[in-house]
Design a binder for these strands. Structure first.
Length: 219
DNA sequence: ACATTAAGTGATT
DNA sequence: AATCACTTAATGT
């Protein structure tokens, strides 16, 4: 939660990220009720079992959404980037049920929190809001299918490479600062296996390995 | 110098 | 592809 940013900056940010998507009167309402929230890298925004009463829209940065099993095993589902929101959160907000997913920030990010109560009235009032939400659902579903495909049809080494490339694209850097352990968690594999596959990728010249860091040759 | 954590390796299932 | 058990390397105090 931050109050340190001036309202001017807040308004500017909202206009920049959402202005071309949503009608002006709605933007004004968003500015009125939305709260900015700054998160650091690796902050947990939403955990499994949480009850959210605010819907986050990502203004800056990116969020990782993952599934978690009872015993703490994870699986990466998809990412959310600037200007986008998470449909799953929406659903669990409206039904006021516990979250099925976990959301973690990948980098220092800026979120705009919208109280759930606004949702329903906006759905009625604003065509652009309905379209925005629907579009969000669609995007999420498409991305989800892509991950399902990856899990079902790709070998783990292909999946790993895709993961690295996605990561690089998202954070806009060929240097990926992750441990093998973290990668193994996202892909729901084990560290040893990931280490070995990474070694193979290095031998093939696709990446360079350092401690806590992987450098991609190209995207 | 020592402890801690990340990464590498061989063997086994 | 996963797991175990162990080694080696890098890093923080």
């Amino acid at each position: 939660m931050t109050r340190t940013l001036s309202n001017d900056i807040k308004n500017q940010l909202i206009h920049d990220s959402l202005g071309y998507l949503l009608e002006d009167t709605l933007i004004e309402e968003i500015i009125r009720v939305g709260q900015l929230r700054e998160v650091e890298a690796d902050d947990i925004i939403l955990n499994v079992g949480d009850n959210m009463k605010m819907i986050p829209i990502v203004l800056k940065g990116s969020i990782k959404v993952s599934r978690e099993s009872n015993d703490g095993d994870e699986l990466l589902l998809y990412y959310i980037e600037g200007g986008d929101t998470c449909a799953m959160t929406l659903q669990c907000c409206v039904r006021n049920s516990a979250s099925e997913i976990k959301a973690t920030s990948m980098e220092k990010s800026l979120l705009l929190m919208i109280p759930v109560d606004m949702m329903e009235s906006w759905m009625q009032k604003y065509k652009s809001w309905r379209e925005y939400i629907l579009q969000s659902y669609h995007t999420r579903l498409t991305e989800l299918m892509e991950t399902v495909d990856a899990i079902a049809f790709m070998r783990l080494d292909e999946r790993l490479l895709k993961y690295l490339v996605d990561q690089a694209k998202l954070l806009g850097s060929l240097e990926i600062n992750l441990t093998h352990q973290k990668i193994a968690e996202d892909l729901h594999s084990s560290r040893v296996v990931i280490s070995r596959l990474l070694k193979q990728l290095e031998i093939k010249g696709k990446i360079k390995l350092q401690r806590n860091r992987i450098i991609l040759g190209s995207i």
